[in-house]
Amino acid sequence: MLRSHLRLTLFALGLLVGIQVPGFIDAYGNHVEARRLEAQQGLAGFQDTAGRFFEGNLNALVEHYRASDDPVIQSDARSVAALVERARLLDREWRIMQGPWYARAWHVLIGADQSLRGQVWSSYRFQVMLAPEAIAWGLSCALLLAWIAESIFVLIRRTLFPQRRRRQRRTAQVVSSSKRPE
């Protein structure tokens, strides 16, 4: 009886965790998009300057700033280079988040920028979504967690108590042979 309650508890836990997955993926995508738009807005003036003097090439603008004799402009080169790099990172993240659901899920799990994922995690609010994808994720995670737990339990039982299984087979054979009509 305890084992069946444990199974139900693990299944419920897997279900609750699984229904959070699409919400977190959406939150990550929204966070990336907001940061991307903010970065583009911050670079707009520099982009205009690069458009007028360097055919839109921000790297050429940064190199021009670095080559300047003015230490203030050289300092600005580091700032602009950091902004350009951040905008590229956010643009790459945003493009990945425009892909199919499995690519987004894999990216958020494995390939997402650590700081962005941490920011989203710290502000994420757990919620129960009843959208079809949340239900599918919830059931999938619940079944996977239940299957893994049951597999571990069976593996441990077979490792620690190998004779018990043999005795059960012998008992079943004796019972079946004694029931045969003669």
Rank of each mutant, 00 (worst) to 15 (best):
W101V: 10
D91V: 01
R35V: 02
G51T: 01
F46S: 04
A87E: 11
S75I: 09
A87H: 05
Q41R: 03
I73N: 12
F53S: 11
L37K: 01
L90M: 03
E93M: 06
A34S: 15
A39P: 06
G56A: 03
G29F: 02
I110V: 14
P100Y: 00
G42W: 07
D69A: 08
G111K: 11
Q74V: 14
I96A: 06
A27D: 08
D48V: 01
A103H: 08
V84T: 04
R104W: 05
V108S: 11
G45Q: 10
H107I: 11
A27W: 10
G111T: 14
M97W: 01
A77N: 08
L61F: 13
A27G: 02
S79R: 15
L89G: 04
D76Q: 12
A81H: 00
A103F: 01
Q74M: 13
N59P: 00
S79D: 13
S75P: 09
V108H: 07
R52E: 06
Y28D: 08
A77W: 12
L89M: 12
L37D: 11
F54M: 02
A27V: 06
L83E: 11
A82M: 12
E55V: 00
R35F: 09
W101C: 03
Q98T: 03
L43A: 01
A60P: 01
A39N: 04
V32L: 10
E93D: 08
G56W: 07
V32Q: 03
Y65C: 11
A81M: 06
P71A: 15
E55R: 08
D26F: 01
H107K: 14
L58V: 05
A50L: 08
P100L: 10
R104L: 15
Y65G: 07
E93H: 02
E55S: 05
A34G: 01
I110A: 14
E63T: 05
A81K: 04
D91W: 00
A77M: 08
D70N: 14
G99R: 15
D26I: 00
A39R: 02
V72S: 04
S79E: 13
P100D: 12
R86L: 12
A50C: 06
L83R: 07
I110Q: 15
P71L: 15
N30P: 00
E85S: 04
A39I: 08
Q47N: 05
R36E: 13
F53K: 03
G99V: 02
H31G: 10
A50T: 02
R104Q: 13
D48L: 03
E33P: 01
I110K: 15
P100Q: 13
L37W: 04
H31Y: 06
A105D: 09
H31L: 10
D48A: 01
E63K: 05
A87Q: 14
H31M: 04
H31A: 14
G56N: 10
